[in-house]
Amino acid sequence: MNKPAQADDHRVDPENASKYLTFTLGSEHYGVEILRIREIIGLLDITPMPNTPDYIKGVINLRGKIIPVIDLRMKFALHCTEFTEETCVIVVEVTNNEAEERSLMGVIVDSVSEVVSIAETSIEPTPRFGAAVSADFIRGLGKTEISGQDRVLILLDIDRAVSDRSEDVQNDTGPASLSVDGLASKAA
């Protein structure tokens, strides 16, 4: 925090500032690059999917297209709460690691707040929290003003945040996918 935050820091110099959509999970504020957001929808009927990790709540019908929906609270192992009126689904574009193609995914969050600009310079690297917090899917911490208060915004690397490759979910993935694969991976 070597550069003290100015009141209007978050809307200066559009050249090296990116826009972030902010949302909350419990008392924490998160941000996702606005360019990755496709739309924000209310909570639809979610069809659960068997044999998937718990944090995958299921799939929804987004105008004829089926997209998976993940519960970010579960993904981040936060305390689970009931869905409220404010709960909504942010539809984001994610890049699958294997294929370069982008696909859509719904992310359930407690509430969506606002869009803020954060200059690259006011993004701090994630401090090391030791094993307590996996910093894998955090791009950095941004300082900004939300609803008139100075807040720390947790900027997510959305590709990593929604992928199932982080270690905290490995044991939830259920039975191995296919027998041949299973054999190979067991052997390896």
Binding site: D45, P50, N51, G58, K65, I66, V162
Partner: peptide, 26 residues
């Protein structure tokens, strides 16, 4: 319909179908 690339293959499920009420059934 595919379940979406983000989900990939789900064991025991070959895809999704959108039923008459607009909801998805595996």
């Amino acid at each position: 319909k595919s379940l979406g690339d983000a989900l990939g293959q789900v064991r025991g499920v070959s895809g999704g179908a959108i039923l008459g009420d607009g909801r998805v059934a595996p």
